[in-house]
Write a protein that binds this DNA or RNA. Structure first.
Lengths: 113, 113
DNA sequence: CCGGATCCGAAAAGATACTG
DNA sequence: CAGTATCTTTTCGGATCCGG
């Protein structure tokens, strides 16, 4: 038991989506189903390990679906579930804020460290 | 240089806000200025250390402002800047999602571990 | 090759005792 | 009161290995 998260819904949401990569993964899946390595290319800085872990967490939460096509070589596709598409709005406002943020002098500085 | 964050604005936003507590802190500051220990009470699970660190990061990003009143005992107040109030929309959609999330069977399970 | 799993050192988060 | 210093614990990234 991770204590009383129930107190605040923002905390509940951030516990699931708060990582550095999770919303980013979702944002790329909004375009449609993607394979594991396609996501890796979309997110060059993520490690294989974290991509696996975050995909699993999102899957466990019912936000994305994992489909294995037993071809050779194997193909694994990830896509948003209907529930996962609820995140569209979050991604949209986050993107909007990010665009603004990248214009700020703070951002320039934060890149150099 | 943390590499090419410039590629995606969602990534930029999540680098700043993606932590578990930061948006939560912001959400409480939307109500108005608050003191350090008031925020601690609002967010019972956060450690002193992380509250300090996250407040500093948000301050450095220009989203919140720290004001010291040299009384005895000293009083330190945090409030959102105008820029910080841009986060209102993000908090709102995150809260909405969190409310939904807390209704899901997944959430119940995720609490027990 | 693709999609991982595993192991390890590094970094971040957490607990908490202490201080101006 | 509002932190800092210090120590412990957890998480993360990178390299490597593996089954199909």
């Amino acid at each position: 038991m991770k204590e009383n998260i129930s107190g605040c819904s923002v905390e509940a949401a951030m516990s699931l989506l708060g990582g550095r990569w999770r919303l980013l993964i979702v944002s790329y899946l909004l375009d449609g189903p993607k394979r594991f390595n396609a996501l890796r290319r979309d997110i060059p800085n993520i490690s294989q390990r974290m991509l696996t872990l975050d995909l699993r967490a999102l899957e466990e939460a019912g936000l994305i679906e994992r489909t294995i096509y037993p071809e050779v070589p194997v193909r694994v596709e990830y896509c948003l579930t209907l529930d996962g598409q609820r995140l569209q709005k979050i991604v949209a406002v986050m993107k909007e804020f990010g665009l603004w943020l990248k214009e700020q002098p703070y951002f320039e500085k934060s890149m150099n460290k």
